[in-house]
Protein backbone atom coordinates (compact mmCIF):
# COMPACT_ATOMS: atom_id res chain seq x y z
CA UNK A 1 0.00 0.00 0.00
CA UNK A 2 1.36 3.34 -0.98
CA UNK A 3 0.16 6.76 -0.12
CA UNK A 4 1.38 9.99 -1.56
CA UNK A 5 2.54 12.40 1.05
CA UNK A 6 5.21 13.70 3.31
CA UNK A 7 6.35 12.01 6.47
CA UNK A 8 4.03 9.72 8.32
CA UNK A 9 0.33 9.73 8.82
CA UNK A 10 -1.67 7.72 11.28
CA UNK A 11 -4.79 6.23 9.86
CA UNK A 12 -7.59 6.10 12.36
CA UNK A 13 -11.21 5.14 12.37
CA UNK A 14 -12.84 3.65 9.33
CA UNK A 15 -9.82 3.81 7.10
CA UNK A 16 -9.97 0.49 5.45
CA UNK A 17 -11.66 0.73 2.15
CA UNK A 18 -9.79 1.01 -1.07
CA UNK A 19 -9.35 4.61 -2.06
CA UNK A 20 -9.89 5.91 1.43
CA UNK A 21 -8.89 9.50 1.84
CA UNK A 22 -5.85 10.35 3.89
CA UNK A 23 -6.24 13.99 4.33
CA UNK A 24 -5.78 15.04 7.93
CA UNK A 25 -4.09 18.34 8.58
CA UNK A 26 -1.57 19.26 5.99
CA UNK A 27 -1.37 15.88 4.35
CA UNK A 28 -3.25 14.73 1.38
CA UNK A 29 -3.36 11.61 -0.60
CA UNK A 30 -5.20 8.39 -1.11
CA UNK A 31 -4.32 5.03 0.14
CA UNK A 32 -5.05 1.93 -1.81
CA UNK A 33 -5.61 -0.31 1.16
CA UNK A 34 -5.00 0.27 4.81
CA UNK A 35 -6.28 -1.22 7.99
CA UNK A 36 -7.44 0.95 10.81
CA UNK A 37 -4.88 2.10 13.33
CA UNK A 38 -2.01 1.32 11.02
CA UNK A 39 0.82 3.79 10.69
CA UNK A 40 1.62 4.30 7.06
CA UNK A 41 4.83 5.53 5.63
CA UNK A 42 3.96 7.86 2.83
CA UNK A 43 5.91 7.28 -0.27
CA UNK A 44 7.05 10.21 -2.33
CA UNK A 45 6.36 10.37 -5.99
CA UNK A 46 3.36 9.55 -8.08
CA UNK A 47 1.25 6.72 -6.84
CA UNK A 48 1.84 3.40 -8.41
CA UNK A 49 -0.12 0.24 -8.02
CA UNK A 50 -0.70 -2.99 -9.84
CA UNK A 51 -3.50 -1.76 -12.04
CA UNK A 52 -1.89 1.00 -13.99
CA UNK A 53 1.44 2.32 -15.02
CA UNK A 54 2.69 5.42 -13.27
CA UNK A 55 2.06 7.64 -16.26
CA UNK A 56 -1.51 6.40 -16.49
CA UNK A 57 -2.06 7.32 -12.89
CA UNK A 58 -0.24 10.58 -13.21
CA UNK A 59 -2.63 11.51 -15.94
CA UNK A 60 -5.61 10.54 -13.88
CA UNK A 61 -4.36 11.88 -10.63
CA UNK A 62 -3.41 15.32 -11.78
CA UNK A 63 -6.13 15.79 -14.32
CA UNK A 64 -3.68 16.28 -17.11
CA UNK A 65 -3.98 15.35 -20.67
CA UNK A 66 -2.84 11.96 -21.74
CA UNK A 67 -0.71 11.95 -24.82
CA UNK A 68 -3.46 10.26 -26.81
CA UNK A 69 -6.01 12.86 -25.93
CA UNK A 70 -4.26 15.87 -27.38
CA UNK A 71 -5.94 16.18 -30.71
CA UNK A 72 -8.85 13.79 -30.67
CA UNK A 73 -10.89 14.70 -27.67
CA UNK A 74 -9.43 18.04 -26.78
CA UNK A 75 -12.48 19.45 -25.08
CA UNK A 76 -13.18 16.27 -23.18
CA UNK A 77 -9.59 16.11 -22.05
CA UNK A 78 -9.84 19.56 -20.58
CA UNK A 79 -12.76 18.54 -18.43
CA UNK A 80 -12.14 18.20 -14.74
CA UNK A 81 -11.87 14.47 -14.25
CA UNK A 82 -14.01 12.87 -11.59
CA UNK A 83 -11.86 10.12 -10.24
CA UNK A 84 -11.05 9.20 -6.66
CA UNK A 85 -7.45 10.35 -6.96
CA UNK A 86 -8.26 14.01 -7.53
CA UNK A 87 -8.30 16.08 -4.41
CA UNK A 88 -11.09 18.44 -3.63
CA UNK A 89 -10.12 21.92 -4.78
CA UNK A 90 -9.64 24.50 -2.06
CA UNK A 91 -12.40 27.07 -2.26
CA UNK A 92 -13.50 30.02 -0.23
CA UNK A 93 -16.21 27.93 1.39
CA UNK A 94 -14.15 24.93 2.46
CA UNK A 95 -11.10 26.45 4.09
CA UNK A 96 -10.79 26.71 7.82
CA UNK A 97 -8.16 27.19 10.46
CA UNK A 98 -6.95 24.27 12.53
CA UNK A 99 -9.22 23.17 15.29
CA UNK A 100 -8.29 24.95 18.49
CA UNK A 101 -6.31 27.65 16.74
CA UNK A 102 -8.79 30.31 17.72
CA UNK A 103 -10.36 30.82 21.12
CA UNK A 104 -13.84 32.25 21.40
CA UNK A 105 -14.10 35.64 23.02
CA UNK A 106 -15.53 35.75 26.53
CA UNK A 107 -18.68 37.86 26.43
CA UNK A 108 -19.45 39.04 29.96
CA UNK A 109 -22.71 40.44 31.26
CA UNK A 110 -24.88 38.67 28.71
CA UNK A 111 -27.28 36.80 30.95
CA UNK A 112 -27.26 33.95 33.43
CA UNK A 113 -27.07 31.26 30.76
CA UNK A 114 -23.72 32.50 29.55
CA UNK A 115 -22.09 31.72 32.91
CA UNK A 116 -20.52 35.21 32.96
CA UNK A 117 -23.74 37.04 33.77
CA UNK A 118 -24.41 39.32 36.70
CA UNK A 119 -21.01 40.01 38.25
CA UNK A 120 -19.06 39.13 35.10
CA UNK A 121 -16.70 36.85 36.99
CA UNK A 122 -15.52 39.67 39.27
CA UNK A 123 -17.32 38.57 42.45
CA UNK A 124 -19.22 40.90 44.74
CA UNK A 125 -18.26 44.49 45.56
CA UNK A 126 -14.90 45.90 46.50
CA UNK A 127 -11.89 47.38 44.73
CA UNK A 128 -11.38 44.44 42.40
CA UNK A 129 -15.00 44.51 41.24
CA UNK A 130 -14.66 48.09 39.94
CA UNK A 131 -13.41 49.11 36.57
CA UNK A 132 -9.67 49.63 36.68
CA UNK A 133 -9.81 48.29 40.19
CA UNK A 134 -6.62 46.62 41.22
CA UNK A 135 -3.82 47.96 43.41
CA UNK A 136 -0.57 48.70 41.62
CA UNK A 137 2.00 46.00 41.06
CA UNK A 138 4.03 45.29 44.18
CA UNK A 139 1.58 47.00 46.52
CA UNK A 140 0.93 44.83 49.52
CA UNK A 141 -1.99 46.62 51.12
CA UNK A 142 0.12 49.20 52.94
CA UNK A 143 2.71 46.93 54.55
CA UNK A 144 6.30 47.54 53.46
CA UNK A 145 6.57 45.69 50.17
CA UNK A 146 9.21 43.07 49.51
CA UNK A 147 11.38 45.25 47.29
CA UNK A 148 11.77 47.80 50.14
CA UNK A 149 12.18 45.25 52.90
CA UNK A 150 15.30 43.68 51.43
CA UNK A 151 18.67 45.45 51.28
CA UNK A 152 20.25 46.49 48.00
CA UNK A 153 23.04 44.28 46.76
CA UNK A 154 25.16 43.81 43.69
CA UNK A 155 26.18 46.42 41.16
CA UNK A 156 25.83 47.20 37.49
CA UNK A 157 29.02 46.93 35.51
CA UNK A 158 28.98 49.55 32.75
CA UNK A 159 31.97 47.93 31.05
CA UNK A 160 30.42 44.48 30.81
CA UNK A 161 30.90 42.87 27.43
CA UNK A 162 29.18 39.67 26.38
CA UNK A 163 30.90 37.58 23.78
CA UNK A 164 29.60 34.78 21.63
CA UNK A 165 32.07 31.98 22.19
CA UNK A 166 33.58 29.80 19.54
CA UNK A 167 35.65 26.70 20.15
CA UNK A 168 38.60 25.65 18.04
CA UNK A 169 37.12 22.27 17.14
CA UNK A 170 34.16 23.97 15.51
CA UNK A 171 36.34 26.41 13.64
CA UNK A 172 38.56 23.63 12.32
CA UNK A 173 35.51 21.62 11.34
CA UNK A 174 34.26 24.55 9.30
CA UNK A 175 37.66 24.90 7.64
CA UNK A 176 37.73 21.17 6.91
CA UNK A 177 34.33 21.38 5.26
CA UNK A 178 35.54 24.21 3.09
CA UNK A 179 33.09 26.66 4.58
CA UNK A 180 35.86 28.96 5.75
CA UNK A 181 38.90 29.78 3.63
CA UNK A 182 41.95 29.54 5.94
CA UNK A 183 44.20 31.41 3.50
CA UNK A 184 42.22 34.60 3.91
CA UNK A 185 41.85 36.78 6.97
CA UNK A 186 39.04 35.50 9.17
CA UNK A 187 37.06 38.33 10.69
CA UNK A 188 33.99 38.20 12.85
CA UNK A 189 31.95 38.91 9.75
CA UNK A 190 33.38 35.78 8.13
CA UNK A 191 32.43 33.81 11.22
CA UNK A 192 28.91 35.16 11.21
CA UNK A 193 28.38 34.85 7.45
CA UNK A 194 29.50 31.24 7.38
CA UNK A 195 27.26 30.47 10.31
CA UNK A 196 29.96 29.15 12.62
CA UNK A 197 28.66 31.58 15.22
CA UNK A 198 25.00 32.45 15.63
CA UNK A 199 23.35 35.81 15.28
CA UNK A 200 23.48 36.58 18.97
CA UNK A 201 26.85 38.27 18.79
CA UNK A 202 26.35 40.98 21.37
CA UNK A 203 29.76 42.60 21.72
CA UNK A 204 31.95 40.25 19.72
CA UNK A 205 33.35 36.73 19.57
CA UNK A 206 35.64 34.99 22.01
CA UNK A 207 37.77 32.15 20.75
CA UNK A 208 38.03 29.22 23.18
CA UNK A 209 40.43 26.34 23.25
CA UNK A 210 38.38 23.13 23.10
CA UNK A 211 39.93 21.04 20.37
CA UNK A 212 43.31 22.79 20.62
CA UNK A 213 45.29 19.56 20.49
CA UNK A 214 44.04 18.61 17.04
CA UNK A 215 44.00 22.09 15.57
CA UNK A 216 46.28 22.09 12.54
CA UNK A 217 45.40 25.07 10.36
CA UNK A 218 47.47 28.14 9.78
CA UNK A 219 45.02 30.98 10.09
CA UNK A 220 45.02 34.66 10.84
CA UNK A 221 41.94 35.67 12.70
CA UNK A 222 40.49 38.84 14.20
CA UNK A 223 38.29 38.36 17.25
CA UNK A 224 37.34 40.35 20.32
CA UNK A 225 38.82 38.00 22.83
CA UNK A 226 40.76 34.75 22.91
CA UNK A 227 41.71 32.20 25.54
CA UNK A 228 45.37 31.48 26.10
CA UNK A 229 44.99 27.89 25.02
CA UNK A 230 43.43 28.88 21.72
CA UNK A 231 46.10 31.50 21.06
CA UNK A 232 48.86 28.98 21.78
CA UNK A 233 47.33 26.42 19.43
CA UNK A 234 46.99 28.89 16.58
CA UNK A 235 50.45 30.39 17.01
CA UNK A 236 51.96 26.92 17.19
CA UNK A 237 50.77 26.43 13.60
CA UNK A 238 52.31 29.72 12.55
CA UNK A 239 49.03 31.59 12.56
CA UNK A 240 48.09 34.74 14.38
CA UNK A 241 45.27 36.03 16.53
CA UNK A 242 44.58 39.74 16.77
CA UNK A 243 42.26 41.11 19.41
CA UNK A 244 40.24 43.92 17.91
CA UNK A 245 37.83 46.30 19.54
CA UNK A 246 34.48 47.13 18.01
CA UNK A 247 31.79 49.01 19.83
CA UNK A 248 28.17 48.04 19.18
CA UNK A 249 27.76 50.43 16.26
CA UNK A 250 31.06 49.35 14.76
CA UNK A 251 30.17 45.69 15.07
CA UNK A 252 26.87 46.32 13.32
CA UNK A 253 28.67 48.20 10.56
CA UNK A 254 31.05 45.28 10.21
CA UNK A 255 28.31 42.65 10.08
CA UNK A 256 25.70 44.52 8.08
CA UNK A 257 27.43 47.12 5.92
CA UNK A 258 24.36 47.51 3.73
CA UNK A 259 22.54 49.12 6.60
CA UNK A 260 24.90 52.08 6.49
CA UNK A 261 25.05 54.75 3.85
CA UNK A 262 28.12 56.20 5.53
CA UNK A 263 30.46 53.79 7.24
CA UNK A 264 31.00 54.96 10.81
CA UNK A 265 34.45 55.85 12.03
CA UNK A 266 36.00 52.98 14.05
CA UNK A 267 35.73 53.73 17.75
CA UNK A 268 38.68 53.33 20.12
CA UNK A 269 38.13 51.25 23.26
CA UNK A 270 37.31 53.15 26.44
CA UNK A 271 40.44 53.77 28.57
CA UNK A 272 39.50 51.20 31.16
CA UNK A 273 39.20 48.44 28.55
CA UNK A 274 42.32 49.26 26.56
CA UNK A 275 44.37 46.54 28.20
CA UNK A 276 41.98 43.91 26.74
CA UNK A 277 42.55 44.74 23.09
CA UNK A 278 45.47 45.04 20.72
CA UNK A 279 43.97 46.97 17.86
CA UNK A 280 41.04 49.16 16.93
CA UNK A 281 38.72 47.18 14.69
CA UNK A 282 38.78 48.39 11.11
CA UNK A 283 35.77 49.32 9.01
CA UNK A 284 34.59 48.23 6.53
CA UNK A 285 35.62 44.61 6.75
CA UNK A 286 39.39 44.31 6.16
CA UNK A 287 40.90 41.52 4.06
CA UNK A 288 44.47 41.62 5.26
CA UNK A 289 45.74 41.26 8.81
CA UNK A 290 47.25 44.23 10.60
CA UNK A 291 51.04 44.25 10.21
CA UNK A 292 53.08 45.31 13.17
Amino acid sequence: MLVRGLGRVCLRGRWGAEGAKVGTGGLRGWCVAATSGQTVKLSPGPRQDEEGTSSFLLTRQWGLWSSAGYSTAAAAAAAVPSFPGASEPLKLNNISDNKGARRKRKRVGRGIGSGWGKTCGRGHKGQKARSGGRPRLGFEGGQTPLRLRLPKRGFHNPHKREYQWLNLYKLSSWIRQGRIDPTKLITMKTLRDTGVVGNKIKDGVKLLGAGHAKFNHKISIEVSSCSELAREAIEKQGGQVQLVYYNKLGLKALMKPWRFEVTPFPARPPPKLRYLFEYVGRLPEPDTPITK
Binding site: G25, G26, L27, R28, L90, L92, I95, S96, N98, A101
Partner: peptide, 12 residues
Protein backbone atom coordinates in the same frame (compact mmCIF):
# COMPACT_ATOMS: atom_id res chain seq x y z
CA UNK B 1 2.87 21.70 -1.57
CA UNK B 2 0.78 19.82 1.00
CA UNK B 3 -2.70 21.30 0.96
CA UNK B 4 -2.64 23.23 4.22
CA UNK B 5 -6.10 24.67 4.26
CA UNK B 6 -5.42 26.38 7.59
CA UNK B 7 -2.59 28.39 6.06
CA UNK B 8 -4.80 29.35 3.15
CA UNK B 9 -7.54 30.35 5.56
CA UNK B 10 -5.22 32.62 7.46
CA UNK B 11 -4.05 34.31 4.29
CA UNK B 12 -7.63 34.84 3.11
Amino acid sequence: QPLRKDIVHRVV
